[in-house]
């Protein structure tokens, strides 16, 4: 198996070729070892940080930004977003408060990424 990956570790953007033979992965084209680690991960199981918003009541805005506690498998992202849309928060919330554990069995939690106080006039 060969896979071409553009490395995103630094702004250089090396074109890394990831090759697999008998379960052993090797990379070429990367300028450093960080590119090797990134390239293999991206070839085997690409992961992304997930950021979105969820509904919130009683706060200054109608949405509260959220972030995953770590990278989540790329293929789970759309499913995770669906789950997030079923969540409705009530103010107040505090930064890094967990609002969803182990989303889609990914091993990753979802946290609110800011503090939102309760507003009185809503």
């Amino acid at each position: 198996m060969n896979k071409q990956v553009i490395c995103i570790v630094c702004p250089k953007g090396c074109k890394v070729l990831v090759s697999e033979e008998n379960g052993v992965y090797t990379t070429t084209g990367n300028a450093c070892n960080r590119g090797n680690i990134y390239g293999i991960q991206e070839a085997i199981e690409p992961k992304r940080m997930l950021t979105s918003t969820v509904k919130i009541n009683g706060a200054l805005h109608q949405r509260c930004p959220v972030v995953s506690s770590g990278p989540i498998k790329k293929e789970l992202i759309m499913e995770a977003l669906k789950v997030l849309e079923t969540i409705s928060l009530s103010a107040p919330v505090t930064i890094e408060q967990i609002i969803c554990h182990n989303i889609c069995d990914s091993g990753v939690d979802i946290l609110v990424s800011r503090t939102m106080g309760k507003t009185n006039d809503l």
Binding site: T53, K55, R63, L81, K82, E85, T86
Partner: peptide
């Protein structure tokens, strides 16, 4: 509205 976007 966002809530109309995902089939929830």
């Amino acid at each position: 509205p966002m809530e109309d976007l995902y089939e929830t």
